[in-house]
């Protein structure tokens, strides 16, 4: 086209037709450009697409699958952390397990929350019906995630106290030894201090567990203290007998407390999981309905 323009410019006699050629050429080019632009724009259509819905559904599946990771990761953390606590490894090793294996659970939750947020920004969620289902899904999965965050705190704190300084109290002391009362009081004080610290940031059930254990240990400790405070041999013998009798009940008391805690926690968690599963099903079918609508519309168009 450029050359044609040049040719016509060289012949002044045909100026008019030359101009026409230029105008026509420009118009043709402009139309072409416009067409190309329109096609390009149309290849990225506006409005909700079937692909957006399918994408959101896949993200839903990803989040649902991610929830199944908590269980094995928690087992790994809890086994490793109890091991370093009960074997009284160096502080640095204890911290490493807490940071690495505990940290993995933390980042798991952070990533899952990010995934929920990303799902919330999908254009599909702007539609009322999908939006309702998504909000319920987000609420219940968010609850499972924060339950697991809390579980990490609970498990760490229980392991640091009951699994730590409290553990040797009823397994490594010689009840028959002369120094038993003294040893018990010393060990119990360390245990009680750890239990008090452990109550920071735990949830209601765990705090109750720790408080119960604290009460049981404190009761035993005070009885042993009475033995130490006894004024004469006879009183000491009497107090020692009473303290020993009280000690017979301790395992039962501790296991009752533990059973109560475990069942309370289990009920709470099962409820959260059941709710989450329900919301997942509802969300899934809302999305399915939407893709079905697209498929039906697609067939009508043919």
């Amino acid at each position: 086209m450029g050359e044609e323009t040049l040719d016509s410019a060289a012949q002044p006699g045909r100026r008019k037709s030359r101009r026409t050629v230029i105008v026509v050429a420009v118009v043709v080019i402009a139309v072409l450009a416009g067409g190309l632009g329109t096609w390009f724009a149309l290849s990225r259509p506006a409005g909700l697409q079937r692909a957006d819905v399918v994408r959101l559904d896949k993200e839903r599946v990803i989040l649902d699958n991610s929830m199944n990771l908590y269980d094995p990761l928690f087992n790994q953390f809890s086994v490793r952390y109890s091991s370093v606590m009960s074997e009284n490894a160096e502080q640095q090793v204890k911290d490493q397990v807490l940071n690495q294996d505990g940290g993995r659970l933390k980042s798991e939750s952070r990533i899952n929350l990010d995934r929920l947020d990303r799902m919330g920004s999908s254009p599909t969620v702007k539609e009322q019906e999908v939006s309702d289902a998504f909000n319920r899904f987000k609420e219940h999965y968010g609850a499972v995630i924060s339950y697991n965050d809390q579980l990490l705190v609970n498990t760490s704190n229980i392991t640091q106290s009951i699994g730590g300084p409290c553990a040797p109290l009823h397994s490594t002391l010689n009840v028959g030894a002369e120094t038993y009362s003294e040893d018990y009081v010393k060990g119990a004080d360390a245990c009680l201090a750890a239990v008090v610290t452990a109550k920071d940031n735990t949830d209601a059930e765990t705090t109750e567990l720790l408080t119960s254990v604290e009460g049981i240990i404190r009761g035993q400790r005070d009885k042993q203290q009475e033995v130490l405070d006894a004024k004469d041999d006879f009183e000491r013998l009497a107090k020692r007998t009473l303290a020993a009798l009280a000690m017979l009940d301790i395992n039962e008391a501790l296991s009752t407390t533990e059973t109560k805690y475990e069942s309370a926690v289990k009920v709470k968690y099962n409820q959260l999981v059941a709710d989450a599963n329900d919301s997942n099903k509802t969300f899934e079918s809302a999305l399915k309905k939407r893709t079905d609508q697209f498929d039906a519309a697609g067939k009508d168009g043919e």
Binding site: M1, G2, T5, R19, I22, V23, V26, I29, A33, L36
Partner: peptide, 13 residues
Amino acid sequence: ALILISSVVVLLV
């Protein structure tokens, strides 16, 4: 001007 415009249009395309 016409030539320039058309060149620009061609380049844009």
